[in-house]
Amino acid sequence: MKEIEILIPEDFAVEEASVFREKLNKLIDRGERHFILNFKNCTFVDSTGLGVLVGIYKRSKEVNGSLQFSSVVAPKVIKIFKLTRLDKVFGIE
Results as ranks from 00 to 15, higher is better:
80 I>G: 01
33 R>H: 09
85 R>D: 04
83 L>C: 11
53 L>F: 03
17 A>W: 01
12 F>I: 09
32 E>V: 06
93 E>G: 12
74 A>S: 15
80 I>W: 00
66 S>G: 10
87 D>N: 15
42 C>Q: 03
93 E>F: 05
53 L>N: 01
13 A>N: 13
3 E>H: 09
3 E>N: 06
18 S>D: 12
79 K>F: 07
27 L>C: 04
23 K>L: 14
82 K>W: 04
86 L>E: 05
36 I>K: 08
90 F>V: 07
30 R>D: 15
77 V>I: 02
59 R>N: 11
86 L>F: 12
72 V>D: 01
90 F>I: 07
27 L>F: 11
81 F>K: 04
93 E>K: 14
31 G>S: 03
50 L>D: 04
47 S>I: 09
93 E>W: 03
93 E>V: 10
54 V>R: 05
79 K>W: 06
14 V>G: 00
61 K>W: 02
54 V>A: 04
46 D>E: 05
13 A>C: 13
11 D>R: 13
13 A>L: 11
28 I>C: 04
77 V>Y: 05
65 G>H: 04
53 L>K: 01
16 E>V: 00
36 I>N: 10
55 G>S: 15
27 L>E: 13
6 I>N: 06
91 G>F: 05
61 K>V: 06
91 G>C: 08
62 E>W: 05
26 K>A: 12
85 R>P: 00
88 K>N: 09
48 T>R: 04
22 E>Q: 14
17 A>M: 02
92 I>T: 10
70 S>C: 14
63 V>R: 08
36 I>T: 11
29 D>C: 07
83 L>M: 15
47 S>M: 08
81 F>I: 06
58 K>Y: 02
64 N>L: 12
68 Q>R: 14
71 S>W: 03
19 V>T: 15
14 V>H: 13
44 F>P: 00
80 I>D: 03
48 T>E: 07
36 I>L: 07
32 E>P: 01
52 V>D: 01
48 T>F: 06
16 E>A: 15
22 E>L: 14
3 E>Y: 09
84 T>Q: 08
49 G>C: 04
90 F>N: 03
58 K>A: 08
67 L>T: 09
22 E>N: 15
16 E>K: 13
48 T>K: 04
19 V>L: 15
77 V>N: 02
8 I>P: 01
18 S>R: 14
29 D>Y: 10
38 N>I: 03
70 S>H: 08
63 V>M: 08
45 V>G: 10
86 L>A: 05
11 D>G: 00
34 H>W: 07
73 V>H: 10
67 L>C: 10
28 I>T: 04
49 G>W: 09
46 D>Y: 09
6 I>A: 08
30 R>Q: 15
